[in-house]
């Protein structure tokens, strides 16, 4: 009997078997290593690509508001939709809260919809926040973080303006610094979709 190769490994990922360099073991190891690299690669691409870009189609989402309504993004086609992500624990969000409400008052009769998405927050504090800043446009929690994941949002506050065609028209990362800045961005989107 020839010398039995004793190199075989008990490790599940490494090539097992009794004969030297078993073929299926080699295949298995390659599948494992390349699979691992693929997972890491895709993970890396995901972590690097950031939020969705202007021109991308916004996926269909449903926002359940604090008032108990269900707002389907698909039903808003044909209107400009301003989606603002915020949270009650987010200090910078407070900078833009009042201005957003003012902008809503300016545009609510001009076919512009404002939606507030409350990112991982607690209801009590969220309602207090809405009351404190007198926000009247529809707001709702981001249940299961599905909406923020769809926008691949990175943090709060962030604001996404969706054009009437259902594609992303403008993005603002971080708080708006003034009412003018909001107005400018909406006007630009309106002009583009005239």
């Amino acid at each position: 009997m020839e010398i039995i190769d004793n190199s075989t490994t008990e490790n599940n990922e490494e090539s097992p078997g009794k004969t030297p360099r078993p073929k299926w073991g080699v295949v298995l190891v390659w599948v494992f290593v390349l699979g691992l690299l693929a997972v890491l690669g895709i993970g890396l691409v995901r972590s690097q690509r950031g939020s969705i870009r202007v021109g991308d189609r916004v996926p269909n989402l449903v926002l359940s508001t604090f008032d108990g309504d269900e707002i389907d993004f698909a039903d808003l086609r044909g209107q400009i939709v301003v989606v603002n992500f915020w949270a009650s624990w987010c200090k910078p969000c407070e900078q833009e809260a009042v201005e957003l409400e003012q902008a809503y008052q300016l545009y609510k009769d001009q076919g512009v919809v404002f939606l507030g998405v409350d990112y991982v927050d607690t209801e009590t504090e969220a309602r207090a926040y809405l009351a404190k800043f007198g926000i009247t446009y529809p707001n709702g929690p981001d249940l299961g973080t599905r909406i923020s994941q769809a926008f691949r949002m990175l943090g709060v506050p962030e604001t996404y303006i969706i054009g009437p065609d259902g594609r992303l028209a403008a993005v603002k990362i971080g708080p708006y610094l003034s009412l003018d800045e909001i107005v400018n961005q909406i006007e630009t989107v309106m002009a583009e979709h005239k």
Binding site: I3, I4, D5, N6, S7, P20, R21, V26, V29
Partner: peptide, 12 residues
């Protein structure tokens, strides 16, 4: 994998 054969054990 290429050099696998060269590493032979000496004992049992």
């Amino acid at each position: 994998i290429n050099r696998w054969e060269m590493l032979k054990g000496e004992n049992f």
